[in-house]
Design a protein around this nucleic acid. Structure first.
Lengths: 340, 340
DNA sequence: CTGAAAGCGCTAACAC
DNA sequence: GTGTTAGCGCTTTCAG
């Protein structure tokens, strides 16, 4: 691996000149020299040493992508269409910017914080992080940061976030269910914070506007995804389903799993029970019956996050620090129209 | 961000001592000093600067994961269950080893080669790389390297690879199709090199053993995945399908897409045409009818690759340099038993 | 057991 | 236009 110094010696010039040519600061260098240096660079196949460059410039050209992943839910965090598409979108946008992506995934926020500061990343994209958790990270990291799909209280309104109109999406879908004649509708999720909370809020709002009662204790089907609990949890939920005409699942992933569990128990969708999801990933469209769901574009989310981050790194002003992408109700085959 | 030097000054000792404590070379240091230093490290929340460390030690603690992705096929390379699970497996295994993952994805091998050498990665995992392409990379990179799913000619037999019994998997599945009474079987893929070639070879071998003729020109349904060509390609293939009783798709992805296209054209699976796939990802199990396919475990592939790589980095001997993981035929609902 | 100092490869201020 | 040099933060050799 040849170094600048060696090339300089070979050519009988100083490292500064070589460095200047490399960085195209050619205003400072005579054309003849430029050419000579460039030839040598080619010939010896010069590759810069990033560590040295980073050390000297105190920047790293690394973008950290840190993902908080619940271990009970994911043992393989990328093996999920949403994360896959999202990280893929980030990677794709980063590819030609001269920045390199380093991924950290952990259940443990302080673990994430450690990794982030180790590499002195020039920017950070944070997935699945709550406001409280951010405070832990902030202690160690002060450079440009973009959140994806985070919700904060007002004290953190200045943070940059790329998210989704979760509430509106759920609201629209719920109105659709109601318009199909459904009035006994359950909500299924494995938590009620952040994104899922917003979806739940939209759901409840639509019910309220339609004058439909919702009993949070009874009608919120709380799923437990941990491996040992999973089957029992589905069994319980499938049992409870008989009391409803429709179930709004907070994600396609659960909608499809639930449908399969229902099928195993001989409960037909949508004839006996309507199901809707959220996300519109390929689970939704590949499943039969195809899932009626709320569409979003995670890849685009990733791309936008990168755009915002790069702007921040370059010191540009952001037009908006809180982007909420629109959603769309996709009607497929899992909702039955009920005659009243 | 506090440095070793600053801590040393604060404590009135040399950087060497502090460094020794950090690296637990405590044989060299008195217990009292160790304690004092450790306290200071905690108090000032010392975080090492990776660039400096790497520069001094000429190692990077980075594992490069380079993926050759056909741009006509994937604009988002991670948005694919196979890659997602695989990279997820790699990430998971790397998480506790003290190595950090840097991902490069490109259609262009020399682009990949450049990125790899830039960061001086301590080890490299290569996805979707052919023997010829490796030679380009080798020019720039000489450290431990593990391939995933590559096939080489004999001149490269010493390379380390983690792969799959693609040939046997396809062979077994084809025998199953034959045992169900199928004799007019087409093969669908978008290429015939590497993995898909092996699958094709296994397919043909089973046909030959059963005395069934295969016309490579006619019976190999060559799909063109490029966006502009895609629909036309599916239309052609759906047309051609009428001549067969079964189609062996080289991947679940295509099997499911093909089934959906067939459905759109009113051709019923498996009543009118049997379809099988390869990979057993969630497309396969979520689709209705559920796809009969060949199972593999991409996450485990990723984990094994990391294991092998870490061994190589640590200078251990590998027991085997070419691992081929087993496959399993998963019988679901897309193959009809034909009465003869 | 501890410290001084060289050097990893590169950049950039400054002198010529 | 070009060269000299200090220094980025850390490791490590070698003296003491």
């Amino acid at each position: 691996m040849i170094t600048i110094k060696e090339i300089a010696k070979e050519l009988g010039m100083s490292t500064t000149t070589v460095s200047n040519v490399i960085h195209k600061k050619t205003g400072e260098v005579s054309p003849a020299t430029v050419e000579k240096v460039e030839e040598a660079l080619k010939e010896y196949n010069y590759i810069p040493n990033m560590s040295a460059r980073n050390l000297a410039q105190n920047e790293s050209k690394i973008i950290g992508v840190a993902m908080r992943a619940r271990e009970d839910k994911y043992d393989n965090a990328l093996n999920d269409p949403f994360s896959g598409a999202l990280i893929g979108g980030i990677e794709k946008s980063l590819r030609y910017t001269g920045y390199y992506m380093m991924i950290y995934i952990s259940d443990d926020v302080s673990e994430l914080a450690k990794h982030i500061s180790l590499w002195n990343a020039d920017g950070l994209i944070l997935l699945g992080i709550l406001g409280e958790e951010w405070k832990e990270i902030k202690k160690h990291y002060a450079k440009p940061t973009v959140f994806i799909d985070s919700y904060f209280d007002n004290s953190l309104k200045q943070l940059v976030n790329v998210g989704l109109q979760d509430r509106k999406g759920a609201y629209d879908m719920t109105k659709y269910l109601i318009s199909c004649g459904h009035r006994r509708i359950a909500f299924m999720a494995d938590n009620c914070i952040g994104v899922d909370e917003e979806r739940f809020n939209g759901f409840v709002q639509a019910l309220q506007e339609a004058g439909i009662a919702f009993d949070r204790e009874k009608d919120f089907l709380f799923h437990i995804p941990a491996r040992e609990e999973r089957q029992k949890s589905y069994a319980r939920i499938c049992d409870r389903c008989r009391e409803y005409t429709a179930v709004f699942c907070a994600s396609d992933y659960y909608a499809v799993n639930l449908m399969n569990e229902l099928e195993n128990r001989g409960i037909r969708v949508p004839e006996q029970l309507s199901i809707v999801g959220f996300d519109d990933n390929y689970y939704a469209s590949a499943h039969r019956p195809a899932l009626t769901t709320v569409h979003q574009d995670p890849e685009y989310k990733g791309e936008l996050a990168v755009q915002q981050l790069i702007r921040m790194i370059q010191g540009e002003e952001l037009e908006e620090n809180r982007i909420l992408l629109p959603t769309e109700v996709i009607i497929r085959d899992t909702v039955k129209v009920i005659n009243r």
